[in-house]
Design a protein around this nucleic acid. Structure first.
Lengths: 240, 240
DNA sequence: TCAATAGTGTCTTTCAGACACTATAAA
DNA sequence: TTTATAGTGTCTGAAAGACACTATTGA
């Protein structure tokens, strides 16, 4: 860097140019009681006070190294959910989505297991809750364009269930093939042929027998576990 | 909206909170002389003056209705390229990518035909040029993290060539199947089996015979044309 | 024994890959 | 007739779908 460039940078003021409001919003999906749910917070502050929204918020230029840090930090602060991996979905930015002015939000998505999670709210919200997608706009009125953001994230989720092993994130350490299939069927909202499903999963070599059996009132089932971390993000050779 | 909310909005000052520098960057790909090229501008201003960069720039809160408008406007202003559809790739935001401070860029991508395009530069750059990907970092030194941005966009391009009809954007109104195949082969950087390729394209019903023939010194070839606008974004049932 | 669920065998279908074959033009 | 390119016929293989079949448990 030469002197002239240093001089330019010294005189540069980040406030000289108007920038849009910049936030992240996170769609955390889970399955509870055979229902696809999403994590929402009830806003306690203007604007859109009293409406439900995706957890999210503004980038903190000091605290956040990058955008995914903002996403994980905001999620933890607003809901108590601590997550290691999150997938960027799409960035929506326009004049009219926020009454405060030109606003941009980077949306993220993840599918997680809700067991062992205790939701914690902070001062910015009245309530934190897992909400069924069907309840949105009936019991739960959404803030800003969050209904559209949820739609985008849900489309991404649906699409990834077609060709990846993403749904394994919903299962405990050990699980049966029938349990795995039920999760896929629930997310796809249709039934899958048993043999095709087993072949697909087994041929992918992402799970292995744990050696244990799940007992029930009928024939016991083999328990399986993920082979390694790659199993959580496996891409199948073809769509389901 | 109630009085309290109106009061809040009236007192809200967009400058009260520090926001990241917010820009868009656009990767425009084309094929010239059997080479994949990308549209770059040589920076005329600090920072990174003298280096090559993707066309792009800051959101204009007055002029731009939304982010894709910013992308199209900046592309037109900086290069003279006018484009109707552009695909969002990924948003990169972190502390260190711009010496001026915490910076975020929304990257966009398109694949277009370079014929009938005259490049026009504006005051912000010294030069505008189509650059071969191989020439980057040898003849063309890149500004900021634009090498990484180009890599992301190129990966998206490569990926879309595998399962969509995107490359048809490079062809004139009428074309032969051999010409179409050559474009795919060039983008994929490998040869494709002729029969498989023809079956794939024809079974997709995205092109139809124009009724004309392309004459050459050997057997004339049927000319085809796209059936409609959907043909430009067709998703094949399987990857190539 | 029966009901219920786990798990398999195997035929079909779809579409990509390979490759030899035929067709049509100019020189 | 040769050469070059256009275009086809058809076999193989991979992986999904359909569906009937067997296996193993508790009641």
């Amino acid at each position: 860097m030469n002197n002239k460039e240093q001089e330019y940078l010294n005189s540069y003021n980040i406030h000289d140019f108007e920038a849009p409001l910049t936030s992240v919003d996170i769609s955390i999906f889970t399955v509870i009681d055979n229902n696809l749910k999403i994590l929402l917070v009830k806003r306690n502050q203007f604007p859109e006070k009293g409406k439900w929204a995706l957890p999210g918020g503004f980038v903190d230029l000091d605290k956040d190294q990058d955008l995914s840090c903002t996403a994980k930090r905001k999620l933890l602060e607003k809901t108590g959910v601590d997550i290691s991996h999150i997938e960027q979905v799409e960035t929506i930015g326009n004049k009219h989505r926020d009454p405060r002015g030109w606003s941009l939000t980077v949306t993220y998505m993840a599918l997680i297991s809700a067991s062992n999670i205790t939701l914690i709210k902070d001062d910015s919200s009245e309530e934190v809750a897992w909400v069924s997608l069907q309840e949105i706009n009936t019991q739960y009125l959404l803030a800003f364009d969050h209904e559209k953001l949820i739609k985008l994230c849900n489309e991404r989720l649906q699409s990834k269930v077609q060709y990846t092993s993403l749904p394994v994130n919903l299962l405990p350490f050990e699980f049966t093939l029938s349990e795995l299939q039920k999760i896929f069927e629930l997310l796809l909202n249709r039934s899958i042929e048993k043999k095709s499903f087993r072949r697909r999963v087994l041929d992918g070599h992402i799970i292995e027998e744990s050696g244990n059996m799940k007992l029930s009132s009928t024939r016991p089932a083999k328990l399986y576990k993920l082979i390694d971390d790659k199993s959580k993000n496996f891409i199948f050779p073809r769509s389901i």
